[in-house]
Design a binder for these strands. Sequence first.
DNA 1: GATCGGTTAAACTATTTGGTTAATCTATAC
DNA 2: GTATAGATTAACCAAATAGTTTAACCGATC
Lengths: 210, 210
Amino acid sequence: MTSSLQSTEERILKAAKKVFHRKGFEGARMQEIADEAGINKALLHYYFRSKENLFEAVFRDAFLELTGYAKTVFLSDNPIKEKIHKFLGYYIAILNENSYIPWFILNAIYTRPGTMKAIFDNAELNPPELMAHLQHQIKTEYGSEINPFHMWLNVLSLSIFPVIAKPLIREIFQLPEDAYKQILEQRKTEVPQFIANALKGYEQSDSMIE
Amino acid sequence: MTSSLQSTEERILKAAKKVFHRKGFEGARMQEIADEAGINKALLHYYFRSKENLFEAVFRDAFLELTGYAKTVFLSDNPIKEKIHKFLGYYIAILNENSYIPWFILNAIYTRPGTMKAIFDNAELNPPELMAHLQHQIKTEYGSEINPFHMWLNVLSLSIFPVIAKPLIREIFQLPEDAYKQILEQRKTEVPQFIANALKGYEQSDSMIE
DNA sequence: GATCGGTTAAACTATTTGGTTAATCTATAC
DNA sequence: GTATAGATTAACCAAATAGTTTAACCGATC
């Protein structure tokens, strides 16, 4: 039953993901990860010396995956509306399956800020480049000097918050899982539309200028 | 040094807030709360029998404070743009001082969903009423059948996410505390403008209809 | 000055938890 | 076949932690 399709290390990482994503560093138990991986607890320490190490590996994976795609999309050559649409599609798809990820990332940053800095630096996000790119694109497509940072932050907010807040909103509105899935599905088209409309609005009344 | 301006119970609650907000349930230590309150650990259990009880009290306070104001603002008689402005002003002000609150709320919901349900029910949020109110207002002010749920969720996203994600974004952009404070300050006017522009856009091209 | 609620200090319990160790198993090389 | 190195296990350890108990203390009030 050792299912050697995956190496032990892969099995551990997969199990660690599952547990850390749902419970964070403090809430996760090494024993639970071992059980989830179907191995002995000692073997966990054999592969990853400490809880800290294992957590870092899990965080790195999640962080690089999320930022990696965002970087690709935002720096691509598509028109803005298309970018936003792709971004939303990707995130909603991924996060529908694994909706704990953004919470997990935030959690890690809040509770273990020191540990994370090295990983940030590794991600090579180059924000100035991104901002310059967006600013240029906004000017070309909409003839407007909208502050690209606020624009970018708006896109992120509209994409990610509804996923993070899912359990809260589901509880408040008494929505079943499927209903919320459908709402997120709608947002794949609604949000780009919403933002495009806002951008049109700026053509007449310029604001959002720093 | 017993600073009897506050009752012991108040001192405990204040200390518990500070610790729970920053570390969540799992990360918080009863000893640390006792120290923070300047009292004995036994006294903690004398007032609040268990960690669970104390946590619930802290969560209740935070949750009711946050939702209470949101309810008031969204159901008030101001025009939409004004509502959004007020909402943002309030949240950015509160959360600038105490930026852990939204993370703490989410944290509680993710890690202790069972414990929270009773408190939800107690908050008397009445979402259908809110939605009906917003829908009517949007129609009156903008003559458009925009889905009020998406609109409401957009406002929340644009308001709350930038606060939750503060440590992440500060790290990515290498921004000092003050710079980010200033950004949030800008958003008090930028976001209502952004949304108003989007709403204007809907007057021509209707979407966001369910 | 006895009583009583609030408070402290300290020892203690029971349990959990990250981490370690020494032995065992398994597969490959010789 | 058996020696060897790596993978895996069961048992164990030390520290931390929530919660309890007990005895004493303090200040107000009766």
